[in-house]
């Protein structure tokens, strides 16, 4: 991402912390993503340079796990569970509603990077299906209307 200058020095404490640990690639990436909201290439290069983990391995790992984002995300994160219980109780309708309301596609963000919509599989609250998370806040027994309402309350 050109134009997105980041301060790679922020990663130093993370690399220091995991210096002695074998196989700490995943926690390093998780903590890095906590800082920037995604995994910028400059940060990845920095990790590779200082940890000695090859850049291809870092990308191989980062692209394997659903948790990691290589692109910046919207200011607000909407996660809709499409696990089995939620699926049979109407999760696809929630997805449609949010996509329609905010002009975005599941897995992506709206043009202004205000909202990112993610489909997740099972947050383990199946008894309250369908479930949605808005900026980490869990909502159970959600309907398309109630979800859109919850999102509107953010601003």
């Amino acid at each position: 991402m050109s134009g997105n200058d980041i301060d790679v020095a922020l990663i130093d404490p993370i690399l220091q912390e995991f210096k002695e640990q074998k196989g700490a690639v995943i926690p390093i990436l998780q903590r890095t993503q906590d800082i920037y909201g995604y995994l910028p290439e400059d940060a990845m290069q920095e990790i590779s340079k200082k940890s000695g983990i090859s850049i291809s391995q870092l990308y191989g790992v980062a692209t394997f796990y659903a948790q990691f984002n290589l692109e910046p995300r919207g200011r607000h994160l909407i996660q809709i569970c499409d696990g089995t219980a939620c699926h049979v109780r109407g999760a696809p309708k929630l997805v449609e509603a949010v996509e329609g309301q905010y002009n975005l596609e599941a897995g992506g963000s709206d043009p202004d990077f205000q909202y990112t919509l993610e489909i997740v599989y099972c947050l383990g609250s199946c008894g309250l299906a369908p479930i949605a998370l808005v900026d980490g806040q869990v909502y159970g027994n959600t309907t398309p209307d109630s979800l859109v309402e919850n999102i509107k309350e953010l601003d």
Binding site: A85, Y121, C122, G124
Partner: peptide, 11 residues
């Protein structure tokens, strides 16, 4: 790593 959608006993 209880990943089955629809399972939450480990949690």
């Amino acid at each position: 790593d209880e990943g089955d959608p629809g399972a939450f006993m480990d949690r």
